[in-house]
Amino acid sequence: MFGITRKQLPKPIKNLKEISQAIQAVRESIEEEDVDKTMDLFEEFIDPTKSGEQMIEQFFEEHREIRLWKIRLKDRGVDYLIENKTKMLNLFDNVEVTITKKLRNEIA
């Protein structure tokens, strides 16, 4: 009763933080050129039961691009990842910047 209380984060903020953490993981797998791990991590951004729904609502074009990349990675593998590494990292950087701005606005 007199212990430390835990403040619950509102759902939108919690989802943005989860996406931000997933971005860190996918960025590492892209830099390591690990195709299987990258494809698995792309699911976080695609699957509606994970962060897919929020990605569609707030980052529709990026969501579509990630879905396309997953298909191409499955077909062409590490060659496609190496060719598009910079483009992928830039997209995730841009999403992360947007999320950071939204989180700051929510907190302020």
Score class of each variant (00 low, 15 high):
residue 73 L to T: 13
residue 60 F to Y: 13
residue 65 E to W: 01
residue 58 Q to M: 11
residue 51 S to L: 08
residue 65 E to L: 15
residue 37 K to Q: 07
residue 65 E to Y: 03
residue 70 K to L: 04
residue 67 R to C: 14
residue 49 T to F: 07
residue 34 D to A: 15
residue 44 E to K: 09
residue 48 P to S: 07
residue 51 S to P: 00
residue 42 F to N: 07
residue 68 L to D: 11
residue 64 R to I: 03
residue 46 I to M: 05
residue 47 D to C: 06
residue 34 D to R: 15
residue 35 V to T: 13
residue 67 R to M: 14
residue 43 E to G: 02
residue 39 M to W: 01
residue 67 R to H: 07
residue 63 H to N: 12
residue 43 E to A: 04
residue 68 L to F: 15
residue 45 F to T: 03
residue 63 H to E: 04
residue 51 S to I: 07
residue 50 K to I: 06
residue 54 Q to Y: 09
residue 59 F to R: 05
residue 43 E to Y: 05
residue 45 F to W: 04
residue 52 G to I: 05
residue 40 D to Y: 11
residue 58 Q to D: 11
residue 54 Q to N: 03
residue 67 R to D: 13
residue 37 K to A: 07
residue 50 K to H: 08
residue 54 Q to T: 14
residue 64 R to Y: 11
residue 72 R to C: 12
residue 59 F to T: 06
residue 68 L to V: 05
residue 67 R to S: 15
residue 46 I to Q: 02
residue 34 D to T: 01
residue 39 M to A: 06
residue 53 E to P: 00
residue 41 L to M: 06
residue 62 E to H: 04
residue 59 F to E: 10
residue 35 V to D: 01
residue 57 E to Y: 08
residue 66 I to N: 03
residue 60 F to N: 10
residue 36 D to W: 02
residue 54 Q to R: 06
residue 61 E to T: 14
residue 64 R to H: 10
residue 58 Q to G: 07
residue 67 R to V: 00
residue 46 I to L: 13
residue 41 L to W: 06
residue 46 I to H: 01
residue 48 P to F: 10
residue 63 H to M: 04
residue 69 W to P: 05
residue 34 D to Q: 12
residue 63 H to I: 04
residue 36 D to H: 09
residue 56 I to S: 04
residue 62 E to Q: 15
residue 63 H to S: 13
residue 43 E to S: 08
residue 66 I to M: 08
residue 45 F to Q: 02
residue 51 S to K: 05
residue 60 F to P: 08
residue 52 G to V: 07
residue 67 R to T: 01
residue 38 T to L: 00
residue 42 F to A: 15
residue 51 S to E: 11
residue 49 T to K: 06
residue 34 D to P: 03
